[in-house]
């Protein structure tokens, strides 16, 4: 049976990817082994900086505020960008890719707020 023209390239493609993955797995294990002498306890000491109740209270509040405010901003942004993207895409489907990238940019704003909140909560 004749193989179709694409399957002849499937095998080398899969092989190359497997080789690449295994190379990097070994690299990572090598890297982490080289630094495994230091224990995880380092992370603990660098995290807890204060047990001041005032700081804890304001820390919770600010984490919530960070997420809330960034989400509102992201909501407004995605709403505007999304509907404009829809409008442009309906007439020119080739702009769909670009348009969705703008939506992704707008959505990342909420993620930034989340990261700030996590960092705050990590330190209290």
């Amino acid at each position: 049976m004749k193989f179709s023209f694409v399957s002849s390239k499937l095998l080398p493609a899969v092989l190359i990817s497997l080789v690449t993955i295994s190379l990097f797995m070994t690299f990572l294990i090598f890297v982490s082994k080289a630094y495994s002498t230091d224990t995880i306890s380092h992370t603990e000491t660098t995290s807890r900086q204060s047990t001041n109740p005032e700081a804890i209270k304001w820390g919770f509040f600010s984490a919530a505020l960070a997420i809330g405010a960034s989400t509102i901003g992201a909501a407004i942004a995605v709403g505007l960008v999304g509907s404009s993207a829809m409008g442009a895409m309906s007439e020119r489907p080739e702009m769909a890719g670009r348009a969705l990238i703008f939506v992704g940019l707008a959505e990342g704003i909420a993620i930034y707020g989340l990261i700030v909140a996590i960092m705050i909560l990590g330190k209290i």
Partner: peptide, 22 residues
């Protein structure tokens, strides 16, 4: 301005892409 932006975002994008085809 934000209210106008919300109302017109879709319309504006679509009209501009329609105009680009004139």
């Amino acid at each position: 301005m934000l209210k106008a932006a919300f109302q017109y975002s879709y319309i504006n994008a679509k009209i501009r892409s329609l105009k680009s085809m004139l």
